[in-house]
């Protein structure tokens, strides 16, 4: 199977703090790759690098034969037209109806006739189960419906790749399962390459073809779901069994924290 995305030796820093430490992995064409790890491990930062929102301190990200870390802003804008992103809060524009939210990227990036756009938008809304909600505003939708609307907007330009940043966050189990089913449908029907950042175990085991796990900015696992379930790494095991990490308590360090100026 073809590699769609190849990340090589990616390093990123916020100030003096290294957030991603020499990360390398690849994403297969037409598969769902889940990036997992505890809160603050660097998952969302990694995603922002892959979609070209952040530039790394060093390393390469090859997508469709181009290292996107070397692209100019104009080239990045072209690249971004080939991808769809569902951000954590769906990032819909509250002043616009759902229909206009979905139509926005099409109006911005194409010269299509308005009649064509309207039909396309209705198709995307139907795809995510929101037929009849086009005239609603984001504030009138539930959390799950907002996510679905966000997916419809991410799908607006028929992207080759879709990226989801914690799509299940804040959703009830049934809505979350519906979203999983939709993500699988997008892979199977449109042969899309999908990256999902998540820490929801049930969803992970339902949708992922491949798993990449980060811990404190390091890549500690890359493999299939079966390999993940059988991994011997303690950090992977703790993640799967939801076992909290022992607190690394050092009396001197703690005293220094409390008394530092």
């Amino acid at each position: 199977m073809d590699e769609k995305i190849v990340v090589k030796n990616l390093v990123t820093r916020y100030g003096n703090k290294t957030i991603l430490k020499d990360i390398s992995f690849s994403v297969q064409q037409g598969r769902i790759t889940a990036i997992v790890g505890g809160s603050g491990c660097g998952k969302s930062t990694l995603l922002k690098h892959i979609i070209g929102l952040l530039k790394p301190a060093s390393g390469e990200i090859w997508i469709n034969g181009k290292d996107i870390t070397k692209l100019s802003e104009m080239q990045l804008n072209d690249f971004r037209k080939s991808i769809g992103v569902l951000f954590q809060g769906a990032a819909l524009l509250n002043s616009m109806t759902i229909e206009d939210n979905v139509a926005l990227p099409i109006r911005e990036h194409t010269h299509l006739n308005e009649a064509t756009i309207k039909i396309m938008v209705k198709m995307k809304l139907d795809l995510v189960g929101l037929s009849g909600f086009g005239d609603f505003y984001p504030s009138q939708l539930s959390g799950g419906m907002k996510k679905r609307a966000g997916i419809a907007r991410a799908m607006a330009l028929d992207p080759e790749m879709l990226f989801f940043d914690e799509p299940q966050a804040g959703l009830d189990p049934i809505t979350s399962a519906g979203l999983d089913a939709l993500i699988l449908k997008l892979r199977d029907i449109f042969k899309m390459t999908i990256i999902v950042v998540t820490h929801e175990l049930h969803s992970l085991f339902t949708i992922a073809d491949t798993i990449v796990m980060l811990d404190k900015g390091e890549l500690i696992f890359e493999g299939t779901v079966e390999q993940f379930k059988n991994a011997q790494d303690d950090r992977v095991k703790r993640f799967i069994t939801r076992t909290p990490e022992d607190e690394n308590y050092c009396p001197e360090d703690y005293f220094n924290i409390l008394t530092a100026d």
Partner: peptide, 11 residues
């Protein structure tokens, strides 16, 4: 064929 093509046929 993408969704704009299908929308064109629908119209």
């Amino acid at each position: 064929m993408d969704s704009s093509a299908i929308a064109t046929f629908v119209e």
